[in-house]
């Protein structure tokens, strides 16, 4: 009983936190409202006995939001990122789309014939979840992650306007490198 109340309470926090993202008037508040919402979701996952997934959700989302706050302020395009500002635009379209999606999904939930449970949950639900998600595709996942990292690194390298010729001179022999902000290991 108490568990049920806590579960629904946390669910409410998650939804309200998500709504607050659009209601508040500052970048920082919007970002951390989202973080709160994610933390609540992570705690709900804990209630589903998926301890590892739940804790990792909290860990990753807090870290990501801390970084995202930096990027949101940095890339707002216009300087009042540090000032009070509205978090919404194109409200009417957005509301219409959101309502339609919600109604469609809710109808789906109610219409679909949910299967009844067969058998009992395995002792280690995290393991079972992992196997059913990834089982035969583990190789694909293992290949995709280095490819993703390589893509990110390559993207940054291509986007950076300074090259190694700027750093080390035309014959790549200039030491120490000419950096606007020298690093700590003396490359």
């Amino acid at each position: 009983m108490l568990t049920d109340i806590a579960f629904w309470g946390i669910g409410l926090v998650a939804v309200l936190g998500g709504a607050a993202v659009f209601y508040v008037d500052s970048m920082a508040r919007a970002t951390y409202a989202l973080a709160l919402s994610f933390v609540a979701v992570g705690m709900q996952v804990l209630f589903l006995q998926q301890n590892y997934v739940g804790v990792v959700t909290i860990l990753m989302m807090v870290m990501e939001m801390a970084i995202m706050a930096v990027y949101m302020v940095m890339f707002m395009g216009m300087n009042p990122a540090l000032m009070p500002m509205s978090m919404v635009h194109s409200n009417k379209t957005a509301i219409a789309v959101a309502l339609t999606t919600f109604l469609a999904l809710a109808t789906g939930v109610l219409m679909v014939d949910w299967p009844t449970r067969r058998g009992s949950p395995p002792p280690d639900v995290t393991m079972a979840l992992g196997e059913s998600l990834m089982g035969p595709k583990m190789l694909v996942m293992a290949v995709i992650s280095p490819v993703m990292v390589a893509t990110i690194v390559a993207g940054v390298v291509l986007a950076a306007h300074r090259t190694r010729y700027d750093r080390f001179g035309d014959d790549l022999k200039q030491r120490p490198a000419d950096d606007p902000q020298p690093g700590g290991v003396g490359r």
Binding site: N79, P80, M83, P84, M85, S86, M87, H89
Partner: peptide, 15 residues
Amino acid sequence: MDHGDMEMSPGGIPL
């Protein structure tokens, strides 16, 4: 840009 209902100098601090 979409300024929304932003106040241009909150608390007397200019942009």
